[in-house]
Computed example of a mutant assay.
Amino acid sequence: MLYLTPYFRLTQEEHKALLALRNQEAILRYTPTQKEIAFSDHLAWVETLKSNDDALYLALKDEQIIQGAIHANALKSCSPSWGLFFDPTTSPLVTSAVALFFLDTLFNHYRAHSVKSFVHVENNPALKFNERLGFKMRDTQPSSFCTMALSHEEWQMKKSSKLFQPILKTASQLTIRN
């Protein structure tokens, strides 16, 4: 059974698994700092999430196994930014369903007008993934990251397409467990 749970609800072992996934070279090379995160630094940062109602960091679990994570910052704004990473062996259906579920949460629960994504310009799989979700390129200057955005209106049109229906069915089975 797949479900999402807040980072601050994870066990020490689950944090180790999450961080091991986040620090994989395939993921690390597309992060802004491109540096591994130390376990103690990760745990100290997670403590700050308990009182931060402007950010949402969720781990994807299949039973007790960490499969990936999805997050959003600036939830109180009309245009939060999001990001995600998954174990490379995670099914594309699952990654897509989690993304659709989360985007729907941002637009409907948090009332976002648009969602932003900052993607490394060389991360072609992430760029294509976002484009399939309806994100449009905004800029690529002045760094190695580009800004993409998805408006609420574009999201409503995209999610009503026939292509998304099987994915939305899977997404409807996801829950956030506190």
Rank of each mutant, 00 (worst) to 15 (best):
E13S: 14
E13Y: 11
K16Y: 06
A20N: 12
L21Q: 00
R22F: 15
A26I: 12
L28R: 15
R29T: 10
Y30A: 01
T33E: 06
T33Y: 06
Q34S: 11
K35A: 04
K35V: 04
E36H: 12
E36Q: 06
E36N: 08
I37R: 07
I37K: 00
A38S: 02
D41T: 08
W45L: 05
E47L: 05
L49T: 15
N52F: 03
A55W: 03
Y57A: 04
A59H: 04
D62F: 14
D62N: 11
E63I: 06
E63R: 12
G68P: 03
I70N: 00
I70P: 00
A72M: 12
A72S: 13
A72Y: 03
N73E: 14
A74G: 02
K76F: 13
P80Y: 00
S81Q: 10
G83I: 10
D87C: 04
T89D: 05
V94I: 13
T95G: 09
A97R: 11
F102K: 06
L103F: 03
D104Q: 15
F107Q: 10
F107R: 15
Y110P: 07
R111W: 00
R111H: 07
H113W: 07
S114D: 11
S117K: 05
H120W: 03
N123T: 05
N123H: 14
P125E: 15
K128G: 00
F135I: 05
K136T: 09
M137D: 09
D139V: 13
P142S: 07
P142M: 05
S143F: 01
F145C: 14
T147Y: 11
T147C: 13
T147L: 14
A149V: 06
A149D: 10
S151G: 04
S151K: 10
E153Y: 15
W155R: 11
W155M: 06
K158D: 00
S161K: 06
K162P: 08
L163F: 09
L163T: 15
Q165G: 08
L168S: 14
T170V: 13
S172P: 05
Q173T: 09
